[in-house]
Design a protein around this nucleic acid. Structure first.
Length: 339
DNA sequence: TAAACGTGGAA
DNA sequence: TTTCCAAGTTT
């Protein structure tokens, strides 16, 4: 994916110039740039807005400032830092990748695109971003910002089809400059995020306005089929004793896999532990995932003392003061914090 | 290859 | 309120 034209494109030059003056240079991952820090930020930023990522990034880097610090982490610790950020497979893939970096690369972040793109959780675009930003070796990227900026600039479809993505990869490659790759890569994303918005782009202040083929006319994406997500009813039972809560690690599920939640149990099914119930409280919440609408009911049972279970499932009594040490879905953590 | 994968910001 | 969708990758 290296460019082969003789000169950097006009678009790239305009973006570099704009970035140096108007870029968001105070983002935490743009300081002390290392491959490790770029990697963590790029993973967190996948399908996630900058504003959401910042506190998670700071917390993660503060706990694991470099590869050496991360190398001794276990999966649970990484998941715990991911709680609330979503797409938890990303955290598991960070764990897997650091194990590979330790075993295959002597705990040094790999330098070549081919090695980087083979790491779990890193695809074409993230690998390109790491090469361009951390090592300043030109590679194209294709995130939502680049797609939007380039599709408008060139007036081509941006409808998430295979055909359109392929076309956009080609154009991204064409516009990726040989000079100033750091500023270009950051700049095109900043431009997409701060000026070339999805709705109501601020074309009047855009550095590309003279050449942009879609200036002042927003290309609508054509997604006709907007089928609704199915709703799934979930019944949880949550045993509690003072400040300890009985949680189970979810396995082989279509959502929240690897996270700690109360036990999922059919409404008419008896409790799999002693049912000399002290008190009951029922909590109902609705929660949207990317592909499901969850209708959650949690029945809470209060016990004098914690007890052991006869079960093959992985469970723990987690004290409220320790919930930060476990990977948990946002709504479950919120409920326990309020109890 | 289309669907799976979380959460919250913004209009 | 609802709907869209964001620094994508994996299977």
């Amino acid at each position: 994916m290296k460019k082969n034209c003789d000169q950097d494109s006009q678009l790239s030059k305009q973006i570099v110039k704009w970035y140096l003056k108007n870029g968001r240079s105070n983002l935490p991952w743009r300081k002390n740039v290392t491959a490790y820090r770029v990697w963590i930020s790029e993973i967190m930023l996948q399908q996630t807005q900058v504003k959401t990522v910042i506190p998670f990034y700071k917390k993660f880097i503060s706990r694991y400032p470099n590869l050496k610090a991360l190398s001794s982490a276990n999966e649970e610790e990484i998941l715990a830092l991911w709680t609330g950020l979503g797409f938890y497979r990303r955290a598991i893939n960070i764990y897997k990748a650091k194990e590979i970096i330790l075993s295959d690369f002597k705990n040094r972040f790999p330098k070549s695109f081919d090695d980087i793109v083979r790491l779990p959780g890193i695809g074409e675009s993230t690998a390109g971003a790491i090469m361009s930003i951390a090592y300043q070796i030109p590679y194209p990227i294709l995130d939502a910002n680049v797609k939007r900026v380039i599709s408008r600039y060139e007036s081509v479809d941006n409808d998430s089809t295979h055909k359109s993505n392929k076309k956009l990869w080609g154009l991204s490659n064409k516009h990726t400059p040989r000079k100033n790759i750091f500023s270009y890569t950051q700049g095109i994303m900043d431009l997409g995020a701060t000026i070339c918005h999805n709705s109501k782009p601020n074309c009047g202040v855009c550095p590309l306005q003279d050449d942009c083929k879609s200036a002042f006319k927003v290309i609508k994406s054509k997604k006709e089929t907007k089928k609704q997500n199915p709703t799934k009813k979930i019944n949880f039972v949550l045993a509690r004793s003072n400040c300890s809560f009985l949680l189970f690690k979810k396995l082989e599920e279509s959502f929240w896999e690897g996270l700690w939640t109360p036990l999922e149990l059919d409404p008419n099914h008896p409790l799999p532990w002693k049912d000399d119930i002290e008190t009951i409280e029922e909590i109902n919440i609705k929660h949207k995932l990317s592909h499901l609408n969850l209708d959650i009911k949690i029945n809470i049972y209060e016990y004098e003392k914690v007890f052991k279970l006869k079960t093959n499932e992985k469970y723990k009594w987690v004290n409220k003061s320790n919930i930060d040490k476990f990977g948990m879905p946002k709504p479950i953590k919120s409920i326990i914090e309020k109890l």
